[in-house]
Nucleic acid binder design. Structure first.
Lengths: 213, 213
DNA sequence: CGATAGTAGATAGCACCACTATCCACACCT
DNA sequence: AGGTGTGGATAGTGGTGCTATCTACTATCG
């Protein structure tokens, strides 16, 4: 198909598709002439993934490129490392520094250790969590992190469920794509669900308690 | 204290503080002269909250203002509605339209119903979740949403834990602030933890499975 | 065949966001 | 008295995510 059809089927304007091509989010079409190229269903699929990551996941364009690059390069890695490669590409680079950060980072390491998780030291999510801990500390809410064991257990249950789904997909490429979708869209979904749970829980708590202060 | 000290103690540049004042994120200091004002610990606290929401939570400035406004106005509401007001202010306005969205929205309503949650129809998180469902559907991963019951259960457990923490804080203002912090920073924390859980789970799954495929 | 529409590729422009810089008249401090 | 700081106003900056325009060419249709 040509670019106009790709645009119509993906509901992405032609100039935007060209922009994604320039930015390396979308691979070039197969050249059929000096100023002609044709695109296939792979392009359409990739384009829909891009839009989902941007619109639903809220990822910036540069991060989307990183994630897609990770999908494409991870296929050469051994299977048990592929997902790590993709997972790492998703994390946002929290620039941690200072004494309080190092302390928070140690707390994170201890938490991971305690739950017996296999997460390598260079994993960016450790630093990300440490960043949150620093923030909580500065707000005088470091106590909240004591409740994180519940978060770990919940996350573990969810992760098993996600992996269960993903591992049933056929083919490497599909699994990798599934991991990205499960991670990013799953995160957006869980965030919305969690906020609803907050509303429900507070309604429950304060209704039975009455309107006492 | 004066603005220089506020800047030093919060580690936010003076021009940025002035910007937040202009944007209504931070209330004006108490005037002591035509071009003099003094700020107190409340301002410092508020400023730290602003930075945490922006840096850790990744919220845009406009959303931070909404959330802070919600904290300030919710204090006049009955307790069981306050948290709803705050919770609503956090959601991002997903502009849902079209047939597929309506269908997704109905699925969401059914899920909420099934779990017996009290979440009012106008709650923006319903639409947000519906938006994710639409995205999943377009990517051919609508099956993933069948696993969301696990998400609901996990979210419920986490919400109970969060509310347990928050309800022990003294004073209305502190509770409202705690809800915001718990929601936003808690979300960032959980996202990091969940991603680590993914890495751990995939390492586990594919290691025991071996390098098949 | 020619008119019209579409195409790849390049360059420039635009709106928004989150600051950042500069300037002013005045105030504080020593 | 004078150097630094202040509130308030206005303008500028760098980054992001497109969007518009242009050129030289190609496809398609009557």
């Amino acid at each position: 198909m040509r670019i106009a059809e790709l645009s119509r089927r993906s509901d992405v304007p032609v100039p935007t598709i060209k922009y994604y091509l320039r930015e390396g989010l979308l691979p070039a079409g197969e050249r059929t002439g000096p100023n002609q190229a044709s695109y296939d269903d792979g392009h359409l699929r990739r384009l829909r993934l891009i839009r989902a990551l941007i619109d639903v996941g809220g990822l910036p364009v540069a991060k989307v490129r990183d994630v897609l690059d990770a999908i494409d390069t991870a296929a050469d890695e051994p299977l048990h490392e592929m997902l790590g490669v993709v997972a790492k590409s998703i994390g946002r680079t929290t620039s941690g520094e200072g004494e309080s950060f190092a302390e928070a980072r140690a707390t994170v390491d201890e938490m991971v250790q305690r739950h017996g998780w296999h997460v390598d030291q260079g994993n960016p999510h450790r630093d990300e969590l440490a960043g949150v801990l620093v923030g909580l500390d500065q707000l005088g809410h470091s106590e909240l992190s004591k409740h994180f064991d519940v978060y770990f257990d919940a996350a573990q249950r969810i992760a098993r469920e996600d992996l269960d789904y993903v591992s049933k997909l056929g083919g490497l490429e599909a699994i990798l794509e599934g991991v990205v979708i499960g991670t990013i869209l799953g995160e957006a979904a869980f965030a919305a669900i969690r906020r609803m749970a907050h509303v429900d829980a507070s309604a429950r708590l304060f209704r039975e308690r009455g309107l006492t202060q």
